[in-house]
Design a protein around this nucleic acid. Structure first.
Length: 471
RNA sequence: GGCGGGGUAGCCAAGUGGUAAGGCAGGGCUCUGCAAAAGCCUUAUGCGUCGGUUCGAUUCCGACCCUCGCCUCCA
């Protein structure tokens, strides 16, 4: 069995083979946030997808080096900084911190490296120098430096590897921006933007005058620095495939030694977008949600994570509040079963039961089919429940099941909530109710049940006696 | 206009040239003093429409309808 992934570069599902001759180390880059505002749940679908890829590779035994850039300089940021009257660093650090907190809430493992664009100006300048030396970039009259797609193609490179496009088909000129006047060809893109008055104090010196980097260059420069000239995996949302990722390829492959060309990235993975109630998320439609909006409505990070992980990453997914409710119920079912297994296993330890792990692995090996993975989980839950209710499961078997679940959950990352321990006064009320029931004083027993409920504790009368559960 | 995804039960969502995973909701049952909770069982002759290929298609091909996205900052 081997992991297979859909590679946007070839539009086929390919077996994943890392560049590392030892077959162990994996370099993975995911385009991160532009830190000008809170990220929304659509953004987080992509980052949870990246987390799934990383966790699954680790589950499969690979040593992953996970890099996610933080774009902390761009047009929107500069506009916000000016409006807020704070420094660029102050503004972007605040939003970066909020983003990382949100990642934590969603149970995402933090990337090993979170390089900031503003701290990698020098590697970017270096890359631009190389491109100019290779004749692939030019400085325009206004001082900005552009990448020349014509020259790139003339030197035998292919532009349009990720998206089948013909340059003539691009709707050039539909929206002409002031800083694009100086380009030779509409599809050329900025590597270095010359300083403009509205940039305020956001600029850096360069061999081509003061200015700031273009957007695409940061990913090429930082991935090169942290992962090398060529690496295994590059992920992002599907909207980034063109032009952003295409331009990254152009810059990175164009900067390589022409005598020793290599493929910049081996596997490109793109996550599909999130719809909300069947529509694109837009502030004007009132269906625009940040993670914090959902948390404020009482939903937990793991519920949101579960929901966003429920569908296959390459399919558009429809986010609904009904779906979130469903996530809550589904997770409760998992928690319930895991809790019972824990009770049964007591302090036993055992090797993981391979049945669940095998089924789950088969599912995820197929281009990360998380839906099929969940199906394996729930079928296993049903089997466990059946045996628990028959009381035909031994402590060792329960422990083996738990060990298997822990392995699976290292990928899913939802944990399993431990049942809360009730305080003594609550336990006392429960004992009182039991006494009343024994005396067949059901009026009193029911009153105590209601009292407990009002204090947030539900009673579950099981054949083994009553249990308390936090509401 | 160019390019690329989707349309599967009340809702969400996998999947396959051989007769439809899973979750939620619904229904039945077990347990219970009654409930609740929990658990078990159950729920699409059908996979946008119309043609075609085939012994057989939801799965392949063609046309059409609807829908989403990219081509411009965008997860």
């Amino acid at each position: 069995m081997a992991l297979k992934l859909f590679n946007t570069l070839t539009r086929t599902i390919e077996e994943f083979v890392p560049l590392d001759p030892a077959g162990r180390a994996v370099g993975m880059y995911c385009c991160g946030p532009t830190v000008y505002d809170l990220a929304h749940i659509g953004n987080f679908r992509t980052f949870i997808f990246a987390d799934l890829v990383r966790r699954y590779l680790e589950f499969r035994g690979y040593a992953v080096r996970h890099v996610m850039n933080v774009t902390d300089v761009d047009d929107k940021i500069i506009a916000r900084v000016r409006a807020a009257g704070v420094s660029l660093a102050e503004f972007t650090r605040r939003h970066e911190a909020a983003f990382l907190e949100d990642l934590d809430v969603l149970g995402c493992r933090r990337p090993h490296h979170l390089p900031r664009a503003t701290e990698h100006i020098e590697p970017m300048l270096d890359l631009i120098r190389r491109l100019i030396a290779h004749g692939l970039a030019y400085q325009s009259a206004d001082g900005s430096v552009y990448f020349s797609i014509q020259q790139y193609i003339a030197r035998g490179h292919r532009y349009g590897q990720l998206v089948r496009i013909r340059l003539e088909d691009l709707r050039a000129g539909e929206r002409i921006r002031s800083d694009e006047y100086a380009k030779e060809t509409a599809a050329d893109f900025a590597l270095w933007k010359s300083r403009a008055p509205e940039d305020g104090d956001v600029f850096w010196p360069s061999p081509w005058g003061e200015g700031r980097p273009g957007w695409h260059i940061e990913c090429s420069a930082m991935s090169r620095q942290l992962l090398g000239e060529t690496f295994d995996l590059h992920l992002g949302g599907e909207d980034l495939a063109f032009p952003h990722h295409e331009d990254e390829i152009a810059q990175s492959e164009g900067a390589m030694d022409p005598a020793a060309p290599r493929r910049f990235v081996q596997y490109w993975l793109h996550g599909a977008h999130l719809l909300v109630e069947g529509q694109k998320m837009a502030k004007s439609l009132g269906n625009f949600f940040t993670l914090r909006d959902l948390v404020a409505r009482g939903y937990s990070g793991r519920e949101i994570r579960y929901l966003l992980l429920a569908a296959h990453y390459r399919e558009p997914f429809n986010f609904t509040f009904e779906g979130l409710q469903g996530a809550r119920a589904a997770l409760a079912r998992i928690d319930e079963c895991i809790g019972k297994l824990r009770d049964r296993a007591a302090s036993q330890n055992a090797e993981p039961d391979p049945a669940l792990i095998d089924e789950f692995t088969r599912a995820l090996d197929g281009d990360l089919n998380a839906s099929a993975g969940w199906a394996a989980v729930f079928e296993w839950i049903r089997r466990q429940n059946r045996r628990l209710s028959e009381e035909s499961i031994s402590p060792v078997e329960a422990a083996a099941g738990l060990a298997a679940w822990d392995r699976i959950d290292s990928v899913l990352g939802i944990g399993a909530r431990a049942a809360a321990e009730a305080p003594p006064e609550i336990q006392a009320l429960l004992a009182e109710r039991q006494a009343a029931r024994k005396n067949r004083d059901f009026t009193r027993a029911d009153a105590l049940r209601t009292a407990l409920k009002d204090q947030g504790w539900l009673i579950e009368d099981t054949p083994a006696g009553p249990k308390l559960k936090r509401k």
